[in-house]
Structure formats: structure tokens, C-alpha cells
């Protein structure tokens, strides 16, 4: 019963921040009417636009800027059943000094771990400025009660998480129960307190770009600070067109409400080229205002070493093998 009180309180908080849309979530019918009234997404056109932006040629000084920007936007992630405190400490050390031989390399934006390892990560990153993000809400499937999800979130926040990456209830979304999804996000946002909330849409399970757009708006209306593509556990994950649709959503949401929401593609970003394509997408869709770790993140692990290798290649003109970069 406690959780219902929480929902009621939290909804008032969130509707205050999205002026003009206060009636949108007054009922499931109202929410459905709003989400289905958003302009559709033509798949062929969205795919074509993303592919065209993928042909941008980013070389020399632009590439150097992009590499450093991308490094500073990485949410270095480990989300395995086999994660241990030692593994998390090692990853945090890498997050703080991605290339120990080169202090010019910026630190990454955050590390992302399971809730039970948050405390370990908080200790390990110390005062470096690297944020600690925790997945929560019965990640990755989200198949549990709201009570469990809220508690999961509270534990992560209590352990010191700066950011919470929640998953939406895709089953409820696909069943058309948008209000349930909305109210869960509102509840989790309330449980976050000061921690930033990233809402994972798991776009690979939403099937259509129309659904991606609707889920993006739903998450933003409910108070999410970031919208995130994927858990990394489902394929396809952070494709260019899906990220494009989400960038359009945050751009339009800022226009309509005055509130700015960040975007985090996660999963499947492995190479420098992948990362740079994402930055091009940001620049030419949402605009320069999102080219900042506060507003755009790359959820990834293996991409960091490729960025470091490309960076060194730019400095020295030569590639070093992977053995010259630390595993974690």
C-alpha cells in the first residue's frame, strides 16, 4: 500500500515540471490518445536518414574532438552475473584513468553496475568526478512487482548511486497499459531522490519506431531525466535509427515543455566509428546542445579501448596492438 501513496505524491511532482501536459496522464485513455496522436515515424525514411548521416566523413581535428568527446560520454558498464568487487574496482580504475600512460585522456562519464556493487564502485571512483550509475527495477526484464522495483531503486540510491537506469515494463507497454508504465516511472523517479533517472525503453522489444517514439514521450512525461535505448541484453540494441527517433523526441519535448532530457544509446556500440556516427546523429538532430556528457551518454564497455587506440593513432601515426591498452 505504501507504494500507492508514493505514486500519488510523485505524480504531482512530475506534472509540475511538464507544464501544458498535466492532463495527459489523467487516465489510460488520455495517455493513449496523446501517445497515439504523436506524428508517426516512417521506417524507410528514418532508416534512410540515419544511413545518410552515417556517411559523414569525420577526419583529422574533427575526429580528435569526437574521440575525446565520446570518451567523456562513456558509461563504462559491467552487468554480468559473474561481476565481483574486484572486477568492479578494476573497471572503476579504468574509468578514472582510461589510459594511465596519457593523463590528457578525459575520464569517462560514469560506471554502470548492478545495485549490490554500487557501494564498491562509489568507493573506487572516490572524488574523481566519475558518476556511479546503477541499473535497478528488476533489470533487465523488469518482471517484478512495483514494490520490489522501488526497493531495488532505494537500495541503489542508499548505497550512493548518482544515477539509476531503470527498465520499463515492456509487457504493459505492448498491452496498451500505458498508465501502468507511466506510474511505475513516476514511482521510481520519486524513489531516486536526487539521483538522475535514466529510463531504459528496451527498443529491441518495442518492435516499431512508432512505439519507440511513444515510449520516449511516455518516459519524458513521467519525469525521466534520460531516455536510454537498451539493456544490452536484447538484440537489436542501440541502432542508429532508434537513436535518431529518440533524439527527435528529446528535441521536440524541449520545444513543447521547456524541459531538456538526455539520451543514452547502449549496447552494440563497439568501435570508434560507431561512436562517432552517434555524435553526428546528435549534432544534426538534437543539436550541439546535447553534445555534452550531461545530455548524451554512450552505454558501452568495449568501445573505450577502440577510442583509446584511435586516439593514440592520431597522436603518433601508428596503431598499437590491443596489448598496449588495459583490459579493464
Amino acid at each position: 500500500m505504501d507504494s500507492f501513496v508514493l505514486v500519488g505524491d510523485a505524480r504531482e511532482v512530475s506534472t509540475l515540471t511538464t507544464s501544458g501536459f498535466s492532463d495527459v496522464a489523467s487516465s489510460n485513455a488520455a495517455l493513449r490518445g496523446f501517445l497515439h496522436g504523436l506524428p508517426g515515424v516512417d521506417k524507410v525514411g528514418a532508416d534512410g536518414r540515419a544511413a545518410m548521416l552515417g556517411t559523414r566523413s569525420i577526419k583529422t581535428t574533427a575526429k580528435r574532438q569526437a574521440i575525446d568527446l565520446a570518451i567523456s560520454m562513456v558509461d563504462l558498464t559491467t552487468l554480468e552475473g559473474a561481476d565481483t568487487p574486484g572486477k568492479v574496482r578494476a573497471m572503476c580504475a579504468k574509468a578514472v584513468h582510461p589510459d594511465p600512460s596519457n593523463p590528457d585522456v578525459p575520464r569517462v562519464a560514469a560506471v554502470c553496475v548492478y545495485p549490490d556493487l554500487v557501494a564498491e564502485a562509489v568507493r573506487a571512483v572516490g572524488s574523481s568526478g566519475v558518476k556511479v550509475a546503477s541499473v535497478a527495477t528488476a533489470f533487465p526484464s523488469g518482471r517484478s512487482s512495483l514494490e520490489v522495483k522501488v526497493t531495488d531503486t532505494e537500495l541503489a540510491v542508499a548505497a550512493g548511486a548518482d544515477e539509476v537506469d531503470m527498465v520499463i515494463d515492456r509487457g504493459a507497454f505492448l498491452a496498451g497499459d500505458y498508465l501502468k508504465v507511466f506510474e511505475e516511472i513516476v514511482a521510481i523517479k520519486a524513489a531516486c531522490g536526487d539521483a538522475h533517472l535514466k529510463v531504459i525503453l528496451e527498443t529491441g522489444e518495442l518492435a516499431t519506431y512508432d512505439n519507440v517514439r511513444r515510449a520516449s514521450w511516455l518516459a519524458m512525461l513521467a519525469g525521466g531525466d534520460f531516455i536510454k535505448t537498451s539493456t544490452g541484453k536484447v538484440q537489436p540494441a542501440a541502432t542508429l535509427p532508434v537513436t535518431l527517433v529518440m533524439l527527435e523526441a528529446v528535441r521536440d519535448f524541449l520545444d513543447s515543455t521547456g524541459r531538456k532530457v538526455g539520451v543514452k544509446p547502449a549496447g552494440g556500440i563497439r568501435t570508434t566509428k560507431d561512436a562517432i556516427k552517434m555524435l553526428v546523429l546528435v549534432k544534426e538532430t538534437a543539436g550541439d546542445g546535447w553534445l555534452d556528457p550531461d545530455w548524451f551518454r554512450l552505454g558501452a564497455s568495449s568501445v573505450l579501448n577502440d577510442l583509446l587506440m584511435q586516439r593514440q593513432k592520431q597522436d603518433t601515426g601508428r596503431y598499437s596492438g590491443p596489448d598496449y591498452f588495459t583490459l579493464d
Binding site: S57, A62, L69, D288, L291
Partner: peptide
């Protein structure tokens, strides 16, 4: 911050 360099 991130401007495209000439890519002729």
C-alpha cells in the same frame, strides 16, 4: 567542440 573538419 565538435565541428566537421574539411574532408575533401
Amino acid at each position: 567542440m565538435f565541428e566537421y573538419a574539411p574532408a575533401p
